[in-house]
Nucleic acid binder design. Structure first.
Lengths: 238, 238
DNA sequence: TCAAAAGTGTTCGATATACACCCATGC
DNA sequence: GCATGGGTGTATATCGAACACTTTTGA
């Protein structure tokens, strides 16, 4: 065995975005061990199993959390630094979790999307599953904070090419303001409400409904829905 | 040892683009073994060594080929299918090349860029190093053909965000037509010459020189050069 | 004088931006 | 009636697309 060549373990880690009010949230899980763990939260992830490719592993991880079988997901970067498991506590956790001595672990990072209202499968594997807004994430093990940082750039890019993902973050019926606030959260800047309306009206896959908000203490906003058929007919807009 | 978890080898493979006349070329190497090998050419790559991260491994591979120490490169996708080494001939070659029985090999694919006129380090490690135009690549081992396919989409995206890479593919002095043909090759469509001139004139980092072609049998074209200082001042353009 | 490629300007439509007021509702 | 957020239109600037003729040079 020629040790010069790296033989290693390969995992996937998923940055699952959710959206509420005017903020992006990320789904984090609490490791099922080491109670007083300073870095209690981490991104959901797993080593890749033998017969899987990375997409399948990411789907498995997400399915365990959400019950959904084919989540929309996007591989976005491999994180490969030898230093990513340099922290002693992180290395100990790996050994505990996988019953293996792991010298080197690289991870393939994914972005995925989930309605924040979805009931999550808390019981299964983790002590806890939580949505935390991107601005308030705690220090996480490995390079998970860095992974989230980079995923934020990536999701902007993704929305440009594939605005369908916006509607995976919103309720089935949503208002113009909700869609605009989601744009603002993803792009991290304000959009003019009037111009945004115009833009939205030119999206053939955003259909106005004859339904309005109820019990709001101001003028009721109209609801819209996403029309997947119209979207598929015309992958690009604007 | 719990075999359910995948322990594997991880490589990098590099799609190095070059440009000449009106075509994109890819740098391929001939494997140093198995002479009559049907799939003689492959992308340059290597297993990742112990102390390296993937970027370092890609840099090492490219440095061996070009002598350049810090090539511009971009990681773009991990290829992880268990089937990618299913071909018997490919598996045999791996064993020959790395003196290891390799059950699973994933690769992290990189894009890089090189002036096609650069003198390459043919002697070192490979039997041959060749530029082949993207339309004429032979069947290559593993999923290397697929990697090139996907790299073509990726380089378009990269140029949009970072047009500096164009100038790594052109001579130091280049004509407007050369730059246009490069755009056309990358985007795989024609651009109007007049509109392109206008666009080029608005790029503050493309400077006209007082030099013109010589010994051409038509009106001599003006040369331009890339101004890195102006580019760095203004990362985005028009 | 011919062939081959270089160079050059205008018009049009689409898109992005900036900006201010009235409307509906619950309290 | 007032506070809250919803909804709307116009004017301007910018960008991309379409389009044809003259210039320079070598052979």
């Amino acid at each position: 065995m020629d040790l010069l060549y790296m033989q290693t373990f390969v995992s996937v880690d998923c940055v699952v975005f959710g959206f509420d009010k005017n903020q992006l949230y990320v789904l984090v899980v609490r490791r099922n061990s080491l109670d007083s763990d300073r870095k209690g939260f981490k991104l959901p992830g797993s080593l890749i199993y033998q017969p899987e490719d990375a997409d399948a592993a990411a789907n498995r991880v997400l399915n365990e959390l959400t019950g959904i079988h084919k989540m929309t997901l996007k591989q976005f970067k491999a994180f490969t630094s030898p230093k990513r498991i340099a922290d002693k506590e992180d290395a100990e956790w790996l050994e505990y979790a996988y019953h293996n001595s792991i010298d080197r672990l690289i991870t393939i990072a994914y972005i995925s999307l989930c309605k924040i209202t979805r009931k999550l499968n808390v019981a299964s594997k983790y002590k806890a599953v939580e949505w935390i807004s991107v601005g308030q994430l705690p220090l996480m093990p490995f390079d998970h904070n860095q992974i989230v940082e980079e995923s934020l750039k990536e999701i902007r890019n993704w929305v440009e090419n594939d605005p369908v993902i916006l509607f995976e973050l919103l309720p089935v019926k949503f208002t113009a303001t909700e869609l605009r606030l989601l744009y603002e959260a993803i792009h991290n800047r304000k959009f003019d409400a009037r111009n945004f309306h115009k833009k939205m009206n030119q999206m053939p896959f955003v259909l106005p409904l004859d339904e309005y908000q109820e019990n709001v203490k101001h003028r009721a906003a109209r609801y819209y829905k996403f029309d997947r058929v119209a979207y598929n007919k015309r992958k690009k807009y604007g």
